[in-house]
């Protein structure tokens, strides 16, 4: 099996995830797109671990999974709070940071 297989698959997932982050308006969907990006990163880590015959890549992949879990927990809590405050989770309504 070629290393390129994994890496290209990861690249495709990553780009789809980026598209999702940019295109989606619903906050939950944006979080899901971020999960896609992280999954792509994990694929890369594991592929490189296999390629170099070194387990460190897998170690990092597990770290990424842990951080992703934390991120989803906090992210969804924030979405809930936004929903409670504004009755909407449309991200384009959140433009208080407008310069």
């Amino acid at each position: 099996m070629l290393a390129v297989n994994f890496l290209l698959l990861a690249a495709v997932l990553f780009c789809i995830g980026v598209f999702g982050v940019i295109a989606r308006r619903n906050a939950v969907l944006v979080l899901m797109s971020i999960e896609l990006i992280l999954a792509a990163v994990n694929l890369n880590f594991v592929a490189f671990a296999m390629m170099n015959d070194n387990i460190d890549g897998q170690v990092f992949a597990l770290f990424v999974i842990a951080i992703a879990a934390a991120e989803v927990g906090v992210g969804l809590a924030m979405v809930l709070m936004i929903y409670r405050n504004r009755k909407s989770i449309a991200l384009d309504g959140l433009s208080e940071m407008k310069g």
Binding site: V18, V21, I22, A23, R24, R25, N26, L29, L91, D92
Partner: peptide
Amino acid sequence: LNNQGWQLG
């Protein structure tokens, strides 16, 4: 579910 400028993605 999508932004107005989603094509930018």
